[in-house]
Nucleic acid binder design. Structure first.
Lengths: 231, 231
DNA sequence: CCTGTATTGACATCATTTCCACATTTATAT
DNA sequence: ATATAAATGTGGAAATGATGTCAATACAGG
């Protein structure tokens, strides 16, 4: 799967790198909002982009965070006048290629290798999205946070001497938004994990010192990394 | 989109109807379980199939219910030794075609029209799955049930003189499982809706008499029907 | 170095949801 | 027709999670 993802990404880069400039965006830039028509497909070269929705009452849910070499394709492909169903904004500073939707679709339609790679990529994303949602729905807020921590390890984890460093700054509020919980609840759960020596938290970066503790607490099925991520 | 779905289904029927027999399954038959290798792609000709997971503690979540002329493709396509991540079982008596996974993938690889149709179908399912999960996560149990009711109307709704009949028998327990809630809570919420004259319930079939009441209570965005369903 | 702002930590209160216990009704099978 | 199982209805205690408030830190910019 990893190969297919890379292959899709590199097929796209090959095709479009000379046609479009790499653009830079500051953290917090809104790329699109729900109900907006889809103009571009974004190829993320570096940085992280969050996708999510805001409830009428103001509370925010971060559906996922995409990072690294990644494709941002969150609409009904091949449909007339497609639009977005949730927002997309840069989570950190980003570099990306913006490809016109029509050009992207034309490329996929006329390139069987790209189409197959895209199909594989979509079927994986489809499963991953559903597994992540089920974890959030079926495990309560504590289990939801634990499942987010596991996914963060898979997507952002860097092995360090005392565990796995989640190498992206995350505030308690952002962690809360990833589970649609509250900052206070996250704060308490992290405090408990800190006191148990399971995690440590410095400069807004978490280090998971005992991933097994977290995995056992949520009955983690050790899904392959391409299925278990925050992306 | 509807056209593309139909086109994918009919492309598949065209290709496989003479090669495989239509098989019948009784309600409650388990088609696959999580962690089982994927042998077949199922083409549902008639009936309904539910997909979901069971928590270690025994509580069940119904992720979705597929019905009618439908494709059941819930694995990482083009991957070696793919397996399922959740169960699939017949919800009602069903008729379906079982296509060997390899034959299905070969067909998609060599048929550009089928591949494009599948890509479009997957991108729609991907969005639909995420919208449904977000509704369940962001609206509490009451909002979750309401969103399930709206989706049931879209997928199973039959206009009748006093509203929209959801033409499939559903127990309170099954409704609860669709939101990962409890039977008691569903019972109380339905009672309230019944007393308000918003729904009626006979022979395990719901009639929604005032869909607008439900829509307004969950700030329904009136998404197109291909995005808002229980499937 | 000071000041305004964002983040973290802590706690009390309130609302939602689950869990448990049991009664009643409805369907199914003999 | 009767026994049995399945589904529905109800009440109350317990757990979980949200909300609001306030103090203590950390940090960035002038």
């Amino acid at each position: 799967m990893k190969e297919l993802k890379i292959s899709l990404y590199s097929l796209l880069i090959q095709e479009f790198i000379d046609k479009e400039p790499i653009q830079k965006f500051k953290a917090g830039t809104i790329l699109f909002n729900e109900k907006e028509t889809v103009k571009y497909v974004y190829i993320l070269v570096d940085g992280a982009v969050s996708l999510g929705r805001v409830h009428v009452k103001g509370k925010e849910f971060i559906l996922k965070i995409l990072n690294g070499e990644e494709l941002i394709l969150e609409y009904q492909i091949f449909k007339d006048q497609p639009f977005y169903y949730y927002y997309g904004k840069t989570f950190t500073d980003c570099e990306m290629l913006l490809i016109k939707r029509e050009d992207f679709e034309e490329f996929v339609r006329t390139n069987p290798a790209a189409n197959s790679a895209l199909t594989a990529w979509l079927s994986t994303r489809y499963l991953k999205a559903q597994m992540k949602c089920m974890d959030l729905i079926m495990n309560g807020k504590k289990g939801g946070l634990y499942s987010i921590l596991i996914r963060l390890c898979n997507t952002y984890g860097v092995p360090v001497e005392d565990g796995i460093l989640i190498d992206v700054p995350l505030t308690h509020q952002e962690l809360a938004n990833l589970t649609y919980g509250t900052r206070e609840v996250v704060q308490r759960m992290l405090k408990e994990l800190r006191e148990l020596g399971v995690v440590s938290y410095e400069q807004q970066k978490l280090t998971i010192r005992d991933l097994n503790y977290i995995r056992e607490a949520v009955d983690c099925q050790r899904c392959p990394i391409e299925i278990c991520g925050i992306n």
